[in-house]
Design a protein around this nucleic acid. Sequence first.
DNA 1: TATATTTTTTAGATTTGTCTAAAAATAAAT
DNA 2: ATTTATTTTTAGACAAATCTAAAAAATATA
Lengths: 219, 219
Amino acid sequence: MNFSITEENYIKNIYHLQQQSELVNTNSLAYELHTKPASVTDMLKKLQIKNLLDYEKYKGFRLTNKGNKVAINIVRRHRLWEFFLVTKLGFEWDKVHSIAEELEHVSNQELIQKLDRFLNHPQIDPHGDPIPDGNGKIPIIHQLSIADVAEKKKVMVSSVANQSPAILELLNHYHINIGTEIKINQRFSFDGSIEIKVGKYAACTISELVAKNIFVYHD
Amino acid sequence: MNFSITEENYIKNIYHLQQQSELVNTNSLAYELHTKPASVTDMLKKLQIKNLLDYEKYKGFRLTNKGNKVAINIVRRHRLWEFFLVTKLGFEWDKVHSIAEELEHVSNQELIQKLDRFLNHPQIDPHGDPIPDGNGKIPIIHQLSIADVAEKKKVMVSSVANQSPAILELLNHYHINIGTEIKINQRFSFDGSIEIKVGKYAACTISELVAKNIFVYHD
DNA sequence: TATATTTTTTAGATTTGTCTAAAAATAAAT
DNA sequence: ATTTATTTTTAGACAAATCTAAAAAATATA
């Protein structure tokens, strides 16, 4: 089944609001979508008719199983594109969200499948959020801040918590990016700074603050 | 200035029809867009108001300079995405057009700029059509069929004329793709077949028919 | 030149998604 | 338990893009 861009945006935002509270209400959805409550009510009816929404007048609403599947697929597309934009095109984190918001509506199944393979089946997007797989399964990924990784371990960067241009500047300087391999050489107890080796670059030292913001895959 | 997806589709199709005849008429545009002449007339008025179209009732129409620039930008996006889909995601030629048709409407300038750089500023799309550059300049590319390349020359595949699944099967077998480096070893006059070396694979022989359908960059 | 045919345009209706303003239901406060 | 405030829904209008059916203009034919 195919949905309009507008419908997809409603579905996706309902999904996200449901992560915080079981039942979603009209006003908060209207706020997220930068639209008016009256418009939301109209769309709720349409989504209910299409069996995407459990909705009772004045009582709030939630996605059906079917609606949930559709939502997860949109989220998957969004996060895959974000990963692509950062790791392949060299975008900075703060720019990718709005672009991915457009790309996510290109709904060709084969496209997403091939994109996923091209990116090597990433499990975490640049913001640290999990990327659902083709079956809608959301991986539970164990991430650890570099500050907590044991010495001598080799790890791969999965995401970065703080997304300010300031930390970006620093990470670029250290050649650290999503997917970068890092070896933890030595931790210094005086100030919590850590000597690391990034890829094949010469070893360098990062502050504890930076270390705490860099997350890596960890099983 | 930003245009709706519908407007962009009209502009692009007018552009393509203009390649064949200076003035475009309502019926042929309606045919291309799978819509009705009455709908076309409505849109023509809108495009004229936005200064994209020179249009006189009952007399046909053509893009203005401004409209032309917009069209070329859409074509650029379309062909860059086609190139991406084939060379990076491994799509076959016959599948990419409709997907690129959706992707082309994601109009973020920086996205296209970075995609272009990522793809290494390709000049020809998988169908052999030129890709306009960021300034709207359309490169005049000299392509040559492999059948006409001198012996011992090293060349790079730019496009493939015949796009049937049958030739695709063969090209996959030979590891030939857009961007692939090929060295012409020897031409055999008896049947016009040619021994070539594809990338770092062992030399192989292709028929004259295949050779005639593979085009390469040539200055 | 008059008539027939084709092409193009107008007029008015429809669909999708939106809005404002007012009414109805629910929740909060006295 | 009323009154007040908030939230949600309805009713009716609007803009974008489309359609059908009929009128108008241009072209072709006799």
